[in-house]
């Protein structure tokens, strides 16, 4: 295992989501799915079988009217940094933890569909393709060429839009730069958030806003007690929200 000293020099892409700002408008999820060629079925109401890389959970404080409050938790892949549960169980090396960026990726073609990772993931971020995706008529014209569509029988999940990382690097390399400028690589959800509730960047870069935000007392993560060190941080000023997130959601 690497010590903190060694890893701190590497990039660790992470995200902060300010749930006090989030209005649950689902623009992040729509942008994500449009970007990542996530298919739609005619009936999407079976949430245990549909495919969604980003889900928005509506949570209430459980109080009676008029003390009821609601909060929305957009939930991408948490990109666990430590003993990433899905990676440690995958028998096919279809999902990997990248040491250089901290991104947990998913190589669709390599997946054998055993769904072990789905059982292992504490955040339920992984989805299994129970059916072949169908793009009726012209709907397939919208498909993003940067992301390969999947097929029946494989698991898929949020990759922090790693193809956007590749594209950003592509452009940087074309300009003769070996590094990425700040905010050159941003996942589709973060770019789409109309409330500016989501921020994305290198958690190891002390100059970047995200590394400042994750140190704020407002920051928390989901199920921190599992010590998988997720790289998606939530922010809230409300105590009840912070308390709630640690136990269930």
């Amino acid at each position: 295992m690497k010590t903190r000293e060694e890893t701190s020099r590497l990039i660790r892409y992470g995200m902060t989501i300010d749930v006090d700002k989030c209005t649950g408008c689902s623009n992040c999820a729509v942008a994500c799915h449009m970007e990542n060629n996530v298919p739609c079925r005619t009936d999407e109401t079976d949430k245990s079988r549909n495919i969604a890389w980003m889900r928005i959970y509506k949570v209430t404080n459980g109080a009676e009217y008029p003390l009821t409050r609601i909060v929305y938790f957009p939930r991408p892949c948490m990109q666990c940094d430590h003993h990433t549960p899905c990676v440690s169980v995958c028998p096919a090396s279809a999902t990997n933890y990248d040491e250089l960026t901290g991104v947990v990726d998913q190589i669709n073609t390599r997946c054998i569909g055993c769904r072990y990772c789905m059982a292992a993931c504490p955040y339920m971020v992984r989805c299994f393709n129970w059916w072949d995706p169908v793009w009726v008529g012209d709907t397939g014209k919208q498909l993003n060429p940067d992301v390969a569509p999947r097929m029946r029988g494989v698991v898929e999940k949020c990759t922090f839009c790693s193809h956007r990382y590749s594209k950003a690097k592509n452009k940087a390399h074309n300009d003769g730069r070996g590094y990425l400028k700040e905010d050159e690589y941003v996942p589709a959800c973060v770019e789409a958030c109309p409330m500016g509730a989501m921020r994305f960047g290198d958690l190891n870069n002390p100059e970047h806003e995200v590394s400042r935000l994750i140190k704020s007392p407002r920051a928390f993560r989901l199920l921190e007690k599992l010590h998988t060190e997720p790289k998606v941080y939530y922010l809230s000023s409300s105590r009840w929200i912070r308390d709630m997130a640690d136990n269930y959601v």
């Binding site: 990248d98 250089l100 990726d105 073609t109 590749s166």
Partner: peptide, 10 residues
């Protein structure tokens, strides 16, 4: 160079 999967796979 890195041989991370997502480097080349999409």
């Amino acid at each position: 160079k890195s041989t991370a999967c997502f480097l080349c796979h999409k």
